[in-house]
Nucleic acid binder design. Structure first.
Length: 302
DNA sequence: AGGCAGGTGGCCA
DNA sequence: TGGCCACCTGCC
């Protein structure tokens, strides 16, 4: 057991400089359900990685358990989307002709889209139907705790003071071996059947997830829609947050409210709203969606 | 205390 | 196609 449980804090490469609120919105605003904050330090888990982020001295710092440091150093930039030019991407949204979008962007300057592991993103959003973020986080924490592999040896675990997120999420292969009843006991409710059936399906088709992730947007979405429990909204979330497809435009209740109130689409259903979004916001509609979503969540009832 | 929650699928006209 | 409703169950 090493004496130093965590590596030293290191500056995050790149020029991402979010406000505390924008950092929180990015990590814990509904894209990912595997980050939590304590004493101004964010701890997050994905694949076999654990990382901490801290905003200090006007910049972002990261560290990882020493045993995982190398893996996290490689994976973190991709996970946080540091390899994409978000300033240029955001600038190419139609904010010049859309005052509401401009306002959303201004108040969440630095908002990012994560690039999470595809399979984990699918699992997260299969849990998300009619659930709030806190509850989704609970479901995933239980799934990880009971059915996922430990991330660290028990000794490093103790010195890292990781009470939560001590296990990674189960892989789809692992999920296929879990009886539906045990899934239900992870607070999944009716979502357990969807996850169970999807897991069996994925287990029957080797590299189905990998192939789907590599497909262009439309083809990938068509394949995701074959899974039980995956509809338009979930498929778009998985492709936006887990495959980097910025044309995906998930329409949930927040986006529905946003477009109803700010764009006059009162009474519109999800499908026409999605069509409106794609044509109005263009090929980066998913990025625009994230700004609208963040704004609507914050300013909810007004 | 009980309705509601970041959807989906199935059934009906 | 379009509208409705059951589905689980813990939280606010």
């Amino acid at each position: 057991m090493s004496k130093l449980a965590w590596s030293d804090w290191q500056p995050l490469p790149g020029d991402w400089n979010p406000s505390p609120a924008t950092l929180a919105e990015t990590l814990d605003g509904g894209q990912s359900f595997r980050w939590h904050c304590a004493d101004s330090i964010w701890t997050g888990t994905w694949s076999g990685c654990v990382a901490q982020l801290r905003l200090d001295e006007g910049r972002l710092w990261w560290r990882a358990p020493t045993t995982l440091h190398l893996a996290v150093a490689t994976a973190l930039p991709r996970y946080l989307g540091l390899n994409r030019d978000w300033v240029t991407l955001t600038d190419s949204l139609p904010w010049r002709s859309d005052v509401h979008l401009a306002q959303c962007i201004r108040s969440f300057l630095g908002l990012r889209l994560l690039r999470q592991p595809f399979g984990e993103t699918l699992l997260g959003f299969l849990c998300s139907a009619t659930k709030q973020i806190v509850q989704i986080k609970q479901m995933l924490a239980l799934l990880a705790e009971r059915h996922g592999a430990p991330l660290l040896s028990s000794s490093s675990l103790a010195t890292c003071h990781l009470s939560l997120s001590s296990h990674r999420l189960p892989t789809w292969a692992e999920l296929a071996a879990v009886p539906e009843k045990e899934l239900r006991q992870c607070l999944l409710g009716f979502r357990a059947k969807f996850i169970h059936t999807s897991a069996k399906y994925i287990a029957r088709h080797p590299d189905w997830l990998g192939e789907t992730e590599r497909l262009p947007y439309a083809a990938a979405k068509a394949r995701l829609l074959e899974l039980p429990g995956v509809g338009e909204k979930v498929a778009d979330c998985v492709l936006l947050f887990g495959a980097g497809k910025l044309e995906a435009f998930p329409v949930d209740t927040w986006v529905l409210k946003s477009l109803a109130r700010r764009y006059g689409l009162t009474g519109w259903k999800s499908a026409p709203v999605a069509h409106f979004g794609r044509t109005h916001f263009g090929p980066l509609a998913g990025l625009a969606q994230q700004y609208l979503f963040a704004w609507e969540r914050k300013h909810g009832g007004r």
